[in-house]
Design a protein around this nucleic acid. Structure first.
Length: 648
RNA sequence: GCCGCAGUAGCUCAGUGGUAGAGCGCACCCUUGGUAAGGGUGAGGUCGGGAGUUCAAUCCUCCCCUGCGGCACCA
């Protein structure tokens, strides 16, 4: 047998026979390591203890102390144990796939009756039983025919499909947890008892399409979360509870910002408090756009289908459009219009008015564009995914050569704004050419290169979404996360070679000939609605002072102080601070609690002492202590604090 | 759109085959209280909408709407 050399993390190496397994390596080191081992990293690859090593390698043996590997294995084995539990309880259920995801795993099943919440309890109990059996986990590589025959015989059609889909040359690996068997690329733990029985929980059942395709049958997916120990699980459940308190839908109610009702699904009724956030943000954006070299426009809401046909929306986007038919009396034909779902065609109409010269480029046309999209009912989510929203939209008409510099300029623009608004943690996704696309490969090469270059030059890394670009061009997505870690696309930048063509936009070049401009679709906040949702969750309702809808409440402690309270409010308002008086017949404790729950950043309490001294007692949201400050001083301080970051 | 779950007072929720309750909030009264809920009294509901079963439906059945969690979608 050939010899190979294994190199350990401490730098020592050892000659061993080829085909040795990490389990044998561990056993050669010590009995206790052999017992505690869960997996290995061999030449950088996460490796099952049972897989043979056939070439020179670096090797590290993992135990439960290696958190990343341990969690992956625990979750992966738990997924299998869950599937086994389900089949032990309901033998007719067909199994499909069950990967590890963030915090846990899921497994998709095909079963006639739905799983109920009570079923989850049964499955959990069965899983604990399986864990306690400490069944050994073993593995073998099979050839394709054997695997297919096996699954056909066992009436597991989804597994047959999965085996068939494994590319030639890749091993078809089987795993056994005791007698129960599953197709799996591994690695896995040594035995089921290595999964902590008190550190996992089945969370929910949901529908999911087989292979993620809505043309396929819907399966039932069970989600579980799993951790190294009970404490990890407790922490996670606690996090979920805390996240619930940050939910913008809950805070929207508590802070009296907005509501939705069933007569207008996916559309927002903004209350005075919420609308102040909205307009404050819009005023701020308007100033930024002016500084950034944009011109602001406004375009019609209801537009004849002819324009949508020309732009391609009628063909590609009609399912998502609100169609408005107008049946005029005496009209020979009724007109068919659509509420605009996007602003781009309108902006091209403005670009097309009059002849444009290359000297006009880049022309940056901005609009707080009110859009309506008929989003699928299941997609609606609070104010984050709605059917009526306003984009801080703009279209930059430029030459191909200007794509890179305009992209860089936009990313800098966006980064500054996100920073002003308190976001440091956002990511960039880059979506490149899809299979179905318009435009030549040469043009795509140029556009993708320009976008990627500009992003790097602006100092940002990005992840690539292969094939996820729009049919008309590649795009950048600027992504933020909500309270429970779900990603939301806010800003975007998309290169478009197609729409200028379809709507016949052109400019006169230096050479005196007509040329086609490129359009960059871009939005910074994305939509005000989604952005405000994210903003609320990011700050858990404690918005920065300048955005807070109610910045200051001045509360009387005794009614004899009321006149002075009103005077303080007037002084603050005159200085540009959003202040309200609370002279209700309530105790100061009550008022402080109520306005704290309402997330008012500053409470000024006024008793007779403050009246006499012309001071206020200042209390900041979240602080326990208070501070007495002279009236003039606090007015000046809060006025300065109320200024938006760009006006300071 | 698909799968599952839910919809009772402004909010959070309990409840029943014989047309309904709590806490908070709201109104009024008492209380003038020094930094996260002072006390009393009272008003407030077509039990999401429609149909069916029944002597009788908020409760059982069916359809629809909306919301929630996923999936799919997301120019």
């Amino acid at each position: 047998m050939a010899q190979i050399s294994l190199t350990f993390p401490d730098g020592n190496s050892k000659q061993v026979e080829a085909g040795i397994t990490p389990a044998e390596v561990a056993a050669g080191i010590s009995n206790s390591l052999a017992k505690k081992a869960i997996s290995a990293t061999v030449n950088g690859r996460h490796y099952d203890l049972q897989w043979p090593i056939t070439e020179d390698a670096t090797i590290a043996i993992h135990t439960m102390k290696d958190e990343a590997e341990a969690l992956e294995l625990i979750r992966h084995d738990a997924a299998h144990i869950m599937a086994r539990a389900v089949q032990e309880i309901w033998p007719d259920v067909k199994v499909t796939i069950g990967p590890v995801i963030e915090n846990g795993w899921y497994y998709d099943f095909d079963r006639e009756e739905p799983f109920t919440p009570e079923d989850l309890g049964l499955i959990e109990a069965k899983m604990k039983e399986i864990i306690n059996r400490r069944d050994p986990v073993t593995t073998e590589v099979w050839d394709r025919d054997r695997a297919i025959k096996f699954y056909e015989a066992n009436n597991e059609p989804y597994k047959v499909e999965l085996v068939e889909a494994i590319p030639e040359g890749e091993p078809i690996r089987m795993y056994w947890h005791g007698h129960w068997q599953d197709l799996c690329r591994g690695p896995h733990l040594q035995h089921t008892g290595q999964v902590p029985a008190d550190a996992f929980k089945l969370m929910k059942v949901a529908g999911a399409y087989w292979r993620g395709d809505s043309n396929n049958p819907m399966l039932q997916r069970i989600y579980g979360v799993g951790f190294l120990n009970r404490d990890g699980l407790k922490k996670y459940l606690n996090f979920l509870e805390e996240a619930e308190k940050r939910d913008h839908r809950r805070l929207g109610r508590e802070m009296d910002l907005f509501h939705l009702q069933e007569e207008a699904p996916g559309q927002i009724f903004w209350h005075p408090n919420g609308w102040r956030i909205y307009t404050t943000l819009q005023d701020y954006m308007r100033r930024q756009q002016e500084k950034g070299g944009y011109v602001e426009v406004n375009t019609p809401q209801v537009i004849d289908r002819k324009l949508w046909e020309q732009s391609g929306h009628w063909e590609k986007y009609q399912d998502n459009m609100f169609i408005v038919e107008v049946d005029e009396e005496h009209a020979r034909e009724k007109t068919v219009n659509a509420l605009k779902p996007m602003n781009c065609p309108g902006h091209v109409q403005i670009f097309n008015q009059g002849l444009k010269s290359y000297r006009d480029l880049p022309l940056r046309i901005a609009e707080f564009g009110s859009c309506n999209r008929y989003e699928p009912s299941g997609a609606l989510h609070g104010i984050m995914r709605v059917r009526g929203f306003v984009q801080d939209d703009a279209h930059i008409f430029c030459t191909e050569e200007q794509i890179e510099s305009e992209t860089k300029k936009f990313i800098d623009f966006l980064a500054k704004i996100y920073a002003d608004l308190g976001f440091d943690d956002w990511t960039v996704k880059f979506s490149d050419r899809p299979d179905k696309r318009a435009g030549s490969d040469a043009v795509w090469d140029k556009a993708e290169h320009a976008l990627a270059q500009a992003t790097e030059h602006a100092g940002y890394e990005f992840t690539v979404n292969p094939g996820e670009g729009a049919f008309y061009g590649p795009k950048l997505e600027f992504v933020l996360t909500d309270a429970i870690g779900r990603d939301w696309q806010l800003g975007t930048l998309q290169v478009d070679f197609v729409l200028p063509e379809r709507l016949d936009a052109n400019y006169i070049g230096e050479d005196g000939a007509k040329h086609r401009p490129v359009m960059l679709h871009r939005a910074t906040l994305g939509s005000f609605e989604r952005f405000i949702g994210i903003l609320i969750e990011e700050h858990a309702g404690k918005l920065p002072f300048w955005i807070a809808p109610r910045q200051v409440v001045v509360a009387s402690i005794v009614s004899d102080a009321d006149d002075y309270v009103l005077e303080v409010v007037e002084a603050l308002k005159a200085a540009g601070v959003r202040a309200e008086a609370d002279i209700r017949n309530e105790k100061i404790n009550y008022k402080v609690r109520e306005h704290s729950v309402g997330k008012v950043p500053v409470i000024l309490a006024i008793g007779m002492k403050e009246v006499a001294e012309r001071t206020v007692s200042l209390r900041r949201l979240g602080d326990k202590h208070t501070k007495v400050v002279a009236l003039d001083e606090i007015v000046a301080d809060l006025a300065a604090e109320a200024l938006p970051p760009d006006l300071r």
